[in-house]
Write a protein that binds this DNA or RNA. Structure first.
Lengths: 229, 229
DNA sequence: ATTAATAAATATACAGTGTTTAGTTACAAG
DNA sequence: CTTGTAACTAAACACTGTATATTTATTAAT
């Protein structure tokens, strides 16, 4: 029985593999992800997976893209939930959604922003679309702030010319914005990422009853620094 | 020949193993660290390593402690290089040393602050001494700032009571300071870590000629936010 | 000096991993 | 009814960390 009959075949095996992979990641963590374990779960043999993914890295890449999509959905939904006139409200909503998503899916967060898979390096070309989309919510808000003249960027550093090509590529998936807005958004991202990644890894003491006082403080700091008036 | 004669034995094999491990990490990255590869390099068998380290994780822990020590040395040296009256100068020196060290030893940086070893979780008890020491340079400067009344901590959030035990433990290795100074230092650490970790992973566009304009900007931001006057 | 104990290594083996190759079968198209 | 292809299995390779048993060099005790 080299090939199972259609009746016994798993209908969308590609999706089933990813689903089993997520299940294993949630249970044993991303580093323990194993093709053979997935195969056991689905009652197929490990090499069968190679019909759907070039190798383990390709599977991980697919998982990362899914995670980015989930993350981007959460970011865009947060922005949409606040009326577009209230730019500052959108900014905080996006920031809160960031941390909320990270706490809800710590494994997905680490899969995207950490380096939990041995030897794996995400191929930028494949990941960029979903990654740019996920950042686009924040970037668009900063852009709105800039267009309304409320963005305080006194002496904000400029990116080097060599990055221009990367920026053009970003715009393709992240939307038409000024380079300044993108770079400010990236700094904000870096700040938020700094706190959340340490928090997820358990390297920050708990602030406040629910632990988010420090985060709120940092969001206020961002507001005071980058929003005029 | 189960046991080599003293002449053929490697003199401090424990150190030699760590040295070979670092060599491999520098060459192939931390995730590719392999006991068997180390053994091959030293021309011994893999199980021989178990005479010096309980298991692979114990070796990694030893490496992390070494990395923390190297990092701490750099931090403390940076503080010492600036006269103790110039607290703000010490603060920036420490900040610059942080990034400099991270760029000089990206693998060590990722070994400490990332999670590049599959399934490995650093045992806090063993790592804390060197970790606390490495942070103590920054913490001590913040403490000086606080004692001289120049620390601006208007509405800075407080840590939860449950952390008090961890704080007591920290003081044992990181020096006698106020809890506030420690937590402010941790926020500063989070900010700096946010930028540097993204930078090391290649996820930030290059700012300025040598790429450190954004970092300088962020250090100025910290100063403006936390230093009075 | 002889013997016993210990320490430090090797040899071997086990269970696991990703991946390659060759073979087999179910199904679809001609 | 045949042929071709897609989708799988089986078996094997080269790795990995680790456990166990064994061997030997050195040290300590008698």
């Amino acid at each position: 029985m080299a090939r199972p009959t259609l009746k016994k075949q798993i209908p969308n095996l590609q999706e089933a593999i990813k689903k089993a992979a997520w299940k294993h990641i949630a249970k044993f963590g991303a580093p323990a992800l194993s093709l053979r374990a997935i195969a056991r779960e689905l009652k197929i043999t490990a090499p069968a997976i190679y019909n759907y993914f070039l190798d383990r890295d390709a599977l991980v890449t697919a998982l990362i893209i899914d995670a980015y999509t989930s993350f981007g959905d959460s970011q865009l939904a947060a922005r949409e939930a606040v009326p577009s006139q209230d730019v500052i409200g959108q900014m905080t909503a996006i920031g809160m959604a960031y941390r909320q998503w990270a706490h809800q899916y710590p494994q997905r967060y680490q899969l995207i922003f950490g380096t939990p898979i041995p030897g794996y390096q995400a191929p930028l070309r494949e990941v960029l679309p979903s990654a740019a989309r996920s950042l686009s919510a924040l970037v668009s808000v900063i852009e709105q702030l800039r267009l309304s003249g409320k963005l305080n960027v006194k002496s904000f550093p400029k990116v080097q010319a060599e990055y221009k090509a990367g920026f053009e590529m970003w715009k393709k998936y992240g939307g038409e914005v000024d380079l300044l807005s993108l770079t400010v958004a990236m700094l904000i991202w870096a700040r938020v990422h700094g706190i959340v990644s340490l928090e997820i890894a358990g390297n920050l003491p708990p602030f406040g009853a629910s632990g988010d006082d420090l985060y709120l403080y940092e969001m206020r700091s961002l507001q005071q620094q980058f929003v005029k008036e």
